[in-house]
């Protein structure tokens, strides 16, 4: 393990890396909604681009490797909303349990 000197994982310029993959996926409706929520919550003054990024960075490299782009984004938006007091952790917990109970697919639950 190399010694940590302050360069954080997301700060990737110059890091060794392999070939660029050109795989492309179409954005699903739920991903577009995540994007819209970030824009609208920012417009409403509840968060900003820097607070979005700050949470993404603090989630760490493992999250970058294991989660998809909009999975990380909704995790950050949710965290930002709790921080700013838009809703409480308990309210989010209750709502997520309700949503989950609606069905087994996104179409059923949304």
């Amino acid at each position: 393990m190399t010694e940590f000197f302050g360069k954080r994982w997301h700060d990737m310029g110059g890091d060794p890396a392999g070939k660029i993959s050109y795989d492309q996926h179409d954005f699903a409706l739920w991903e577009k909604r995540v994007d819209a929520l970030m824009v609208l919550a920012s417009t409403a003054g509840l968060m900003n681009t820097d607070s979005l990024r700050r949470v993404l960075e603090d989630m760490g490299e493992e999250a970058y490797e294991a989660m998809s782009y909009y999975e990380r984004w909704i995790a950050s938006v949710g965290q930002n909303m709790i921080e700013v007091g838009a809703f409480s952790t308990a309210e989010l917990a209750r709502k997520m349990a309700q949503v989950k109970a609606r069905g087994s697919t996104y179409g059923d639950a949304t």
């Binding site: 999975e71 949710g78 709502k95």
Partner: peptide, 17 residues
Amino acid sequence: TKLSYWQVMEIAVRELL
């Protein structure tokens, strides 16, 4: 597809807001 944790969160965050 099977409803994921993060999709549940998207729906919940959206509805709460």
